[in-house]
Design a protein around this nucleic acid. Structure first.
Lengths: 161, 161
DNA sequence: TCTTGTTTTGTTATAGTATAACGGAACATT
DNA sequence: AATGTTCCGTTATACTATAACAAAACAAGA
């Protein structure tokens, strides 16, 4: 669910994507002996519920509503944890966060971000990443982390126009 | 000067890079009937003088020293102008700005950012960009702007360690 | 079960990044 | 000189993120 193959198809059952992501997160944390606390779980769920990358301050009210403390550090801590475990990614161009559909793989994909509807989709970019890594290496540079973000227009918005 | 071929070589005469960049900027603005005002020129020079990407608030004091107004909008306006003309790039992961060595080309390159010394170098990435564009296109996504940022360790810092 | 060390959360304050809005100055052209 | 446009000064504020420390929850051994 919500894999690259689905991409911008809006008509899939997203609640299934969310459920699967939450299950994966739970088992991943269990396997790593880490605690997916109620706050972390809720933050992950909120991020997944949105197809648009979510800003930290957009998450806060929902935390408050759920009865949790809702000062910025609360949500940033949860997001830090989730990022470290590869469960969410931060999109630097947007200062926003989005769920990762394949938290097991170490590699970050490439984000396709629609300027019109703000939807973001993570696409595979292993080939491009390898290419960049090689070129960097040719300059003597050792790659540790790559961030590829693409702004443009998604198929749905193109159709609309 | 300061082209991709120089990359991380620290021993080149950077004042030459700066001079050439300023010349190019002047002629580019002239050709486009745009005004490279004293503030804009100074901001561009300050950005170029640093091999590390420069934050907007690091530029402000220098503006003040030069006798200009130095409230944030001043520097952001200058940076916006310079970005629009392709004279500087913003590195999203760092919230910082760096001079572009080839403002004529429309395409943005790929930034190699050293975690240790904070130096950033713009490398060509046309091949990778084309690849990503194709993959996006296969998903029905039309690419308008790409941002490729790479964190890692530069050759100089590797040697040091 | 109690203790003890560790991890997580609550809380307050503050740092850092960026823009809105409006009036006035400088400029280019007629 | 008049006028429309671009640029700048100024104040205020929005948005994003972290520091620092105390309290609570938890985990694991004695």
């Amino acid at each position: 669910m919500c894999a690259d193959t689905i991409a911008f198809e809006t008509h899939h059952d997203h609640s299934q994507c969310i459920e699967q992501a939450m299950d994966e997160a739970r088992s991943l944390c269990k396997a790593r002996s880490l605690r997916l606390t109620p706050i972390r779980e809720l933050v992950l769920k909120l991020v997944w519920q949105s197809h648009k990358p979510l800003g930290a301050y957009e998450i806060l009210p929902a935390l408050a509503e759920a009865g949790f403390n809702s000062a910025p550090p609360t949500v940033y801590r949860a997001l830090d944890f989730l990022q470290e475990q590869g469960l969410v990614h931060r999109i630097a161009m947007l200062n926003a966060f989005i769920g990762c559909p394949h938290p097991d793989d170490a590699h970050h994909g490439c984000f396709l971000i629609c300027r019109h509807c703000n939807t973001a989709v993570e696409a595979d970019s292993s080939a491009a990443e390898a290419l960049i890594r090689e070129q960097a290496s040719a300059l003597g540079f050792t790659t540790e982390q790559q961030s590829i973000e693409v702004l443009g227009c998604c198929p749905n918005c193109q159709e609309r126009a």
